[in-house]
């Protein structure tokens, strides 16, 4: 079957079987391999994308269900060579190590800050509860999202912990 959708601001279409998962359509048909598969039980969040403005698991949707949807993946965040503040936060605050959970984590954080521009640490932690990271212990991911939140509010982010040396 033919499915069409807007991905990162571009109208795309392609063939999919009814059983084709959206994440496979993004990765294999559209070549957008930034969205990752980390589990099969819908628990790890590595496949998180923004669908009509909400964080969803692209591994737990059929491509067919996304027909007509407006999707943003991690590849669509930066514009004109400028990183999204969340991406910048992850870079500035060492919010990633192996990077595999990072695209889903970033998409989760982007949608979180859209919904709640000034989250507390607890709200950040609860907001990324559906994204597992095995490398960072989440410490610097929280710092990265705090950084991005400050930037998006036009505030000066707190200095990095290692800058207090």
């Amino acid at each position: 079957m033919k499915v069409s959708m807007s991905v990162n601001g571009k109208q795309v279409s392609g063939d999919a079987e009814p059983r084709t998962l959206l994440v496979h359509f993004l990765r294999d048909t559209l070549g957008l391999t930034g969205t990752h598969v980390g589990c099969e039980s819908s628990y790890c969040g590595a496949c998180t994308i923004s669908l009509d403005g909400k964080a969803v698991l692209s591994c737990t949707m059929l491509a067919a269900q996304a027909d007509g949807a407006d999707i943003t993946t991690v590849e669509g965040l930066a514009s004109n060579g400028e990183l999204h503040p969340v991406q910048e936060g992850f870079w500035e605050r060492h919010g990633l190590q192996c990077g595999f959970c990072t695209p889903g984590m970033i998409m989760s954080a982007v949608t979180l800050l859209e919904e709640n521009p000034e989250p507390s640490e607890d709200e950040i932690r609860q907001g990324i509860e559906g994204n597992l990271c095995r490398c960072t212990g989440y410490h610097n991911i929280v710092r990265a999202i705090e950084y991005a939140g400050a930037k998006m509010r036009g505030e000066e982010p707190a200095p990095a912990e290692w800058e207090n040396a």
Binding site: R19, E40, S41, S42, T60, M61, Q65
Partner: peptide
């Protein structure tokens, strides 16, 4: 199939394999 948060994980793990899905 509505949100699919229960159905699709079971289908992905082949714990459930319906012949047809009505979305």
């Amino acid at each position: 199939l509505a949100g699919g948060m229960s159905l699709l994980p079971m289908m992905k793990m082949r714990l459930l394999s319906p012949d047809a899905v009505v979305d």
